[in-house]
Computed example of a mutant assay.
Amino acid sequence: MEIKKVTIIGLGALGILFGNHLAKRMPKDDLRIIADEKRIQKYKNEHVYCNGEKCDFHYVTPDETCEPADLLIFTVKYEGLHEAIQAVKNHVDENTIILSALNGITSETIIGRTFGRDRVLFSVAQGMDAVKVGNKLTYDHMGMLVFGDQKSGIMSESVKCVAAFFEKMDFPYQVDTKMDKRLWGKFMLNVGVNQTVAVFNSNYGEIQREGEARETMIAAMREVIALSEYEGIHLTEADLNYWLSVLATLSPDGKPSMAQDVEARRYSEVELFAGTVLELGENYHISTPVNKKLYDTIKSIESSY
């Protein structure tokens, strides 16, 4: 199968980043951005910008009938996932391949319950330093999408198909045949960097240099390493160092989504990060004091909204 029709749901940082790249390389009608009528009107009136450039997107509402997507990409926040699953139903048939760029380790399973696990590839968005303020996105590094099959050690036709499409689109990507470990590695990074930068009210530069913030971040990540053993993932210090090397490539002035949420006084994905760590720690009787402190601090910040 050749991918021709692509649908993206979620016009946050990643939705704009991916959509802007693809929109320059595809026929306009072949790339659909799903949004409700109110959001579409806002996008059309105020426009959406990527690195100062106005994006030219083709918007569709969830109710519009259309050809199913060959590739469907979820770029919503976790709290909007269930609504998004309902919104994309006109875009999914038996041939649709689904990628989820959401943070955390559960979105693929949730999407798979509705559309079938065999249609959903594991994927991780990494290496981007995009910052979205209002309707404007800026970034220095686009990063890449890493994806692969849910079962380790194989490369399905769906994976090959997406790789061929991204190659044609000059879209940065990598195929990984051990995506369960990659998902947990990205989760470990998010647990550390997202929460620490938010709590320290800082940016990537703060945790790229030695100091209390970096120590806090690494300690939070090591709690995920301990939990991964009980989940059969077996993260190691080598994995931690790999993700620290990814972090080192980002613009020091950039900041992760949770820090942007806290600055904008929006509720964050703390339940997805520290909340998950605390729940797993309780299940396995493992102490997770660093994540408990981060969780309590962020919840305290949010209680003042």
Rank of each mutant, 00 (worst) to 15 (best):
M1E: 05
K5S: 05
T7D: 06
I8A: 03
G10R: 01
L11D: 08
A13L: 08
H21C: 14
A23M: 01
M26A: 00
D29C: 03
R32I: 10
I33W: 08
I33R: 04
I34P: 06
I34T: 04
K38S: 03
R39I: 10
Q41D: 08
Y43V: 02
K44P: 12
G52A: 09
K54W: 11
C55A: 04
D56T: 02
D63E: 15
D63T: 10
E64P: 15
E67L: 11
P68K: 00
L72G: 06
T75Q: 05
T75E: 05
L81Q: 04
H82F: 01
A84F: 02
K89P: 11
T96F: 07
L102H: 04
L102P: 09
N103Y: 11
G104L: 01
I110A: 02
R113K: 07
F115Y: 05
G116Y: 05
D118W: 12
A125H: 03
A130F: 11
V131M: 00
K136F: 15
L137P: 13
Y139M: 01
Y139F: 04
D140P: 14
G143C: 02
G143Q: 09
M144R: 15
M144W: 15
L145W: 07
V146N: 05
S152A: 09
I154A: 06
V162M: 14
A164Y: 09
A164L: 10
D170L: 07
P172S: 12
Q174P: 13
V175W: 06
T177E: 14
M179F: 12
R182W: 13
W184H: 09
K186V: 01
T196M: 07
T196R: 05
V197Q: 07
V197E: 08
A198D: 14
N201R: 14
E210I: 08
V224Y: 08
I225F: 04
L227Q: 04
S228C: 02
G232M: 08
H234L: 05
A238T: 09
L240T: 00
P252R: 01
D253P: 15
K255W: 14
M258V: 11
Q260C: 07
D261L: 09
V262R: 05
V262G: 06
R265K: 12
Y267M: 03
E269M: 00
E269G: 01
L272V: 12
F273M: 12
G275E: 12
G275Q: 02
V277N: 00
L278P: 10
G281C: 04
S287R: 15
N291E: 03
K292H: 08
L294G: 11
Y295I: 02
I298C: 08
K299T: 05
I301V: 10
S304A: 03
S304I: 09
